[in-house]
Structure formats: structure tokens, C-alpha cells
């Protein structure tokens, strides 16, 4: 080594020492902590803004109007029940499709499939999650809606059904990835034990592995539903947006108007600080509360105290 190289070597070493010192570490951990807590701050600020803009609804619009079944904001009919009902119909429909399929795919990938099939399936499911929703909306309008109108002989394919099928499709990837992690976390000894006492592969999955992973699977389902209820552009494009109060099972194959589509379609034209503007923010508050409840339920399931039997087994 030349003298110069030796000097450089030591220079570098001293720089490293500065970077590793307790002081910089404090700064770095402090910053990371700040980023972590900033999420709480953002949620609080968003909620504050929603309430600030939307709460005036409660004294500007009589409860009788708010809880009526006609939504026609340009003539001051602000009944939000059809919108709540529309969101509910689409969400239930999508959940009925996505939950069994999502859990089924997770079981296949996690428990049954050979290694090579798993290596192919997982990336494809991740790609499915990455398709922009507006593209799926186009497919819904041009392919699915006409198809459903013909095979189910319904007046129009722009209906809750089309919305539910596409939303079910986009919820599947989120359900699969969380549920598959949960199944993966079940100790190998459970399966070995079940198989050793003569259970078939299906019995092992259905009676042992799935129940052992149930809190994770339930969380997967709730996260999937959260994804469904907040989706906007797809429902705006394919559900027909007719604010009809769903009263019977036929609502699943009829046009519906969801809360998200209403806000998206009407927010652009509304005059600031008008009654209509406040009501749209009020719908935002309702949506926020719904997803908050879903998320709290999901986390409380995961963090709840394990039962004694489960502690002994694990």
C-alpha cells in the first residue's frame, strides 16, 4: 500500500465511525419513529377534515330526508338509504364470490399444490392484484355486462351482479396472500399429527390446518371486504348508478348506486359549502367509519388473547 492509500483507508474508517456513532443512530431512529407515528397523524387529519366538511349535514338536512329512499340531489332529495343499500348489495355479492374462491386458492397454493405450480400461481395472482381497476371497468362494460344480460335474461347487464363479479375478482388476490401466510404459519407438527392418526389430506386441511389458521384467514376476509367496499371507478362504470332502494333478492341483478360512485360522480360539479357538498362529505364519513370498523375488527382478531388450548398446542 502506498502512503496515500493508507491515508484514505483511515479516512474512510473514521467516517464510518461517525456514521455509526450513537448520535446518528439517535437521529435515524427518531426519524423512523416520526414516519411511523405520521400515519396516525394523517388518519386523524383526514378524519378531522371529513367531519369538518360533512357534519353540517346533520342540521342542514332533516333526518326524515336523510333516511328517505330518494336520492336526487339537484332537487334537494338527499336520501342516503339507497346508496347504503347499493354498497351493501355489491359488497355482499362480491364477498360471496371472493371469500370461498380466495380461501380455496390459498389452500391449494399453501397445502396441496406441488412446488412448481405454486411458483407459477403466486406471481400470477400478484399480477391480478396489479391490474388497474379502470381496465377491469372497461372489460366489465364491453364484455361482462352484455354477457350477463344474455345468459341471465335480465333487462340490463349494468347491474350489481357485474360489479360484484369484478370486485370479487380484485378482492381475491388480497384474500389469497394474507390467508396463505396464515396457513403457512401453522406448525408442520399439526399436519403430521393429523396424518399420523389416519386423517385424509382433506380432513387434515378442513379439520386441523384451517381452524388453526382461522384468525389469519378471518383477517384476510375482512381486508378483502375492506378493499371491495372502497372501490370506486369499477362500480361507477358497471353498476348503472340507479339509486334504487334494494328490497328483494332481485336487487343483486338490478342496477344499484353505491356510496363511492355517488361521491365520485357528483363531487366535481358541486358548489363548495352547499348542502349537497356537505352531504357528499357526510357519505365520506360513513365510508370512513365502515372501513375503520372493519380494520379494528380485523386487528382485534389477530391480537386477541389466545385460548388456553391453543397455547398448549403451539
Amino acid at each position: 500500500m502506498t502512503v496515500r492509500e493508507v491515508q484514505q483507508f483511515y479516512k474512510r474508517k473514521s467516517l464510518n465511525r461517525i456514521l455509526n456513532s450513537a448520535f446518528t443512530e439517535k437521529i435515524i431512529t427518531g426519524l423512523i419513529k416520526l414516519f411511523g407515528y405520521s400515519a396516525i397523524l394523517f388518519v386523524a387529519l383526514i378524519f378531522y377534515y371529513l367531519v369538518h366538511e360533512g357534519i353540517a349535514t346533520l342540521w342542514e338536512v332533516p333526518f326524515g330526508t336523510l333516511l328517505s329512499t330518494r336520492w336526487y340531489p339537484i332537487e334537494a332529495f338527499y336520501g342516503i338509504l339507497p346508496l347504503l343499500g347499493g354498497s351493501l348489495v355489491v359488497t355482499i355479492g362480491a364477498a360471496v364470490i371472493a371469500v370461498p374462491m380466495g380461501i380455496g386458492v390459498a389452500i391449494y397454493i399453501g397445502e396441496i399444490s406441488p412446488r412448481w405450480a405454486r411458483e407459477i400461481l403466486k406471481p400470477f395472482i400478484e399480477i391480478l392484484a396489479g391490474i388497474p381497476s379502470v381496465v377491469l371497468g372497461f372489460i366489465g362494460i364491453l364484455v361482462l355486462a352484455p354477457f350477463f344480460r344474455r345468459i341471465f335474461a335480465i333487462p340490463t347487464g349494468l347491474s350489481a351482479l357485474t360489479g360484484a363479479v369484478i370486485l370479487g375478482g380484485i378482492a381475491i388476490p388480497s384474500i389469497v396472500s394474507v390467508a396463505e401466510d396464515a396457513l403457512d404459519a401453522v406448525p408442520r407438527s399439526y399436519r403430521d399429527g393429523a396424518l399420523a392418526i389416519g386423517a385424509t389430506e382433506w380432513q387434515t386441511i378442513w379439520k386441523v390446518t384451517l381452524p388453526a389458521a382461522r384468525s389469519g384467514v378471518l383477517m384476510a376476509v375482512l381486508l378483502g371486504i375492506g378493499r371491495i367496499i372502497g372501490e370506486t371507478i369499477i362500480v361507477l362504470m358497471v353498476t348503472g348508478n340507479a339509486p334504487v332502494m334494494p328490497t328483494s333478492l332481485s336487487a343483486f341483478v338490478s342496477p344499484v348506486r353505491t356510496m363511492t360512485a355517488t361521491v365520485a360522480a357528483e363531487m366535481g360539479e358541486v358548489a363548495k359549502a352547499s348542502v349537497h357538498y356537505h352531504v357528499l362529505f357526510f357519505i365520506g364519513i360513513i365510508l370512513f367509519l365502515i372501513s375503520l370498523i372493519i380494520n379494528i375488527t380485523a386487528t382485534s382478531i389477530v391480537f386477541r388473547k389466545k385460548k388456553r388450548s391453543e397455547r398448549i398446542l403451539s
Binding site: 330518494r70 339507497p82 362494460i141 364491453l142 355486462a145 352484455p146 344480460r149 340490463t156 347487464g157 349494468l158 361507477l236 362504470m237 348503472g240 348508478n241 340507479a242 339509486p243 334504487v244 332502494m245 338490478s254 342496477p255 348506486r257 360522480a265
Partner: peptide
Amino acid sequence: QDTLLLPSSQGIVSEVLDN
């Protein structure tokens, strides 16, 4: 109330052409 409210003129044209 069951009138479909479509967000664009194109949406109306494509649904009429199909249905």
C-alpha cells in the same frame, strides 16, 4: 328511480348499441 345514470355520453351510446 331505476333510470341508469351513466357518467358519459359514450357509456349511453355503447349500452344502447348493445342492449
